[in-house]
């Protein structure tokens, strides 16, 4: 019974931290919508990675077992699915959270491991970007149906897509590392004393 209770408490913790994480996602989406007028969704994962590091550290401290990060990923995926805005976001969320979980709990390593697993975990949020790619397909179809030349279409998209892809992916890596560094400072200042030690 006691074991079941502690398991339930862990699951409740995961739910609560997922909710807080989701709130951070909402806030970073909102901030970007206010500040960057167009194509703001390619920056959502990066900004979120910058802000959400503290939650990641708390999860690792509270539920230090394999499965916690994966569950967060799946729950986020289902939440995305039901709220419908990013229907295919489920796939990257599942893959990257599983990978981060395995890296964090399945391998040995020191402090750099946290940076790496957090970076991978942050890539799970690339789901909101995927619709842009499909929108591009729809756009190309529309152009073709209007009789535009294929070479012209390629010319329009070549520069835009490659540059934005590199910016988006690069910013996730940079912001994850920076975000984790800041998060550790804040964590040590406020939460480490309350929680005991973090591995």
């Amino acid at each position: 019974m006691a074991r079941q209770q502690s398991k339930i408490k862990e699951l409740v913790y995961i739910g609560i931290y997922t909710a807080i994480y989701f709130l951070v996602v909402c806030i970073s989406t909102g901030v970007l919508k206010l500040t960057v007028p167009i194509f703001n969704s390619i920056m959502i994962p990066a900004l979120n990675a910058l802000l959400a590091g503290v939650i990641y550290l708390t999860v690792l401290d509270r539920v230090p077992r394999f499965g916690a990060l994966t569950t967060i990923g799946i729950v986020m995926g289902i939440f995305f699915l039901i709220t419908g805005h990013f229907p295919i976001a489920f796939v990257p969320e599942l893959i990257f959270s599983l990978l981060a979980d395995w890296l964090q709990h399945g391998t040995r390593g020191g402090k750099t491991k946290i940076y790496l697993s957090y970076t991978i975990f942050s890539f799970g949020l690339t789901g909101p970007i995927l619709p842009l790619w499909f929108m591009k397909q729809a756009y190309i179809n529309e152009l073709v149906s209007r009789g535009k030349d294929q070479a012209y279409i390629n010319h329009v998209f070549a520069a835009v897509t490659n540059v934005s892809f590199v910016i988006s992916m690069g910013s996730i890596v940079v912001c994850s590392i920076l975000g984790m560094w800041i998060a550790q400072k804040i964590y040590d200042k406020h939460l480490a004393g309350l929680r005991g030690t973090r591995s």
Partner: peptide
Amino acid sequence: DIILPLVVV
């Protein structure tokens, strides 16, 4: 293990 966190969210 997935339903419970989802309900909590």
